[in-house]
Design a binder for these strands. Structure first.
Length: 422
RNA sequence: GUGGGUGUAGUUCAGCUGGUAGAACACCUGGUUGUGGUCCAGGAUGUCGCGGGUUCAAGUCCCGUCACUCACCCCA
């Protein structure tokens, strides 16, 4: 036997029940998105490296040390996408999607890649589902985007998550605040690494986890107190609309985002039962991104939700996730003639919209029944010589053992009836 | 990238101060020749992560290495 090949470092497999749960979570998160009129967009998994350098920002950790970047055979620099917004904006600009009616409302789902050291809830291939609403600077749109994420987590069944909200200001008011904060930080007693961080992105120092740093930050200036008139009224309106959407949140004036493009509204969803990687989703407004990437000067707002982490959160809350039943009806043939009949029947049943499976491999009756049990089949039908002669079968409901007689012709309707009655 | 922890059956793990490999669950077969879950009996399963060292003897001690994992950092 040869040596087995393992999955690359930090990459999860979702197999068996995990696969069922993964799909269920992803569907629950995407349902409110589709109810809100967003269109699906399928994007490439790799892009020109420059898209992220310019879009996400060269100084961010994501770009400077976490990207999977390589040269293709034509010596072009290619990067596996570390996040979704930049790619969506590229497609919008490239195909002129912003030349029609605004706002452009798009959603996407799929894998993203970051070359970090793996740990609980942090994967090198991570699954995200996101939306972007582009081209209309209406606070109601900000509120809608946040409300959709909120509804998604509710739809999964989560109860313990929190939504943190703040405003990071705009190109007009942020630079002055930033300078103020840097002056404040310069007076503190900080180690070298923290100082370096302060000069690249001073905001990041604000959510440092260390007590000795936090104790010095009690009087730090906060952006929300230095917003310009437009940003204040924008932020106030968002909060009014959020109430109308029925969303609950916490003010988080010290919240920090790691991507450079965020402006004004930013938000983050946290789950307290997750350990170190507690962010299950986050996003915000990005008013300068499109022009930075060579498009018109249109603003946008969006979010990314972590499907992997949402699944972990759902498990941490002990939720029942997804339908573990693989089949509505499981057919067991006894003998070769019966097998032919069973194959015809499952084909028919599937055409009629029932999830139908059969016992393969000519197992005995007992073993086949066990398989049906393992697959959590809702009903079982055994077909042998007797059934072939009489054309009448017994449908057995596995939950309580109740059986019903049926002809072959009426099999699908009788199965549906048996599953639905309770 | 920096630290800590852990590597033994498909899975979760036990294996004492070194003496030649175990449990539970899962899997297969049968008890019950055509009806699952419970019960009973039987069966299969391991380079003890990998390499080296110490020793009469290493799963056990030492060194190295790789992997997994948690945390820092960062973020979904």
């Amino acid at each position: 036997m040869s040596e087995i090949i393992r999955a690359p470092k930090g990459v999860p497999d979702y197999a068996q029940n995990d696969g069922i749960e993964f799909l269920a979570i992803r569907d629950s998160l995407s349902e409110p998105i589709m109810l809100a009129g967003y269109q699906y967009i399928e994007l490439p998994i790799y892009e020109d490296t420059n898209l992220y350098v310019r879009g996400v920002g060269e100084s961010t950790d994501v770009v400077s040390k976490e990207m999977f970047t390589f040269s293709d055979r034509g010596d072009r620099s290619i990067t596996l996408r570390p996040e979704g917004t930049a790619g969506v904006m590229r497609a919008v600009i490239e195909h002129g999607l912003d030349r029609g009616q605004l706002p452009v409302k798009l959603w996407y789902a799929g894998p993203f890649f970051r070359a970090e050291r793996p740990q609980a809830g942090r994967y090198r291939q991570l699954q995200q589902i996101g939306i972007e609403a582009i081209g209309v600077d209406d606070p109601a749109l900000d509120a809608e985007v946040i409300a959709i994420a909120y509804k998604g987590f509710k739809n999964v069944g989560l109860k313990n998550f929190t939504l943190k909200l703040t405003s990071l200001g705009c190109a007009k008011c942020r630079p002055a605040y930033r300078k103020l904060l840097q002056e404040f930080l310069a007076k503190l007693n900080l180690d070298e690494a923290t100082r370096a961080r302060a000069s690249i992105n001073p905001l990041r120092v604000l959510d440092d986890k260390r007590q000795e740093v936090q104790s010095q930050l009690a009087d730090a200036p906060l952006q929300v107190n230095y917003l310009c008139e437009e940003c204040i009224s924008h932020y106030n309106q968002i909060r009014d609309y959020l109430r109308l959407f029925g969303v609950q949140w916490e003010e988080a004036p010290r919240m920090v985002r790691g991507l450079d493009y965020y402006t004004r509204t930013t938000f983050e969803f946290d789950h307290p039962q997750l350990g170190a990687q507690s962010g299950i989703g986050g996003g915000g407004r990005y008013d300068g991104l499109m022009s930075e990437l060579g498009g018109q000067n249109l603003g946008g707002i969006g979010f990314g939700l972590g499907v992997d982490r949402t699944l972990l959160a759902a498990r941490a809350e002990g939720l029942a996730i997804g339908d573990k039943s693989i089949a509505d009806i499981y057919l067991i043939p006894l003998g070769d003639a019966a097998k032919n009949q069973v194959i015809e029947l499952i084909s028919q049943l599937r055409t009629n919209g029932l999830r139908a499976d059969m016992a393969f491999g000519d197992r005995g009756l007992k073993g086949s029944m066990k398989s049906a049990d393992k697959l959590a089949a809702k009903c079982v039908v055994v077909i042998g010589d007797g059934e072939l002669d009489s054309k009448i079968v017994n449908i057995k409901r596995m939950a309580d053992g109740k059986t019903v007689e049926s002809s072959f012709e009426e099999l699908d309707s009788n199965i549906k009836k048996l599953i639905e009655e309770k």
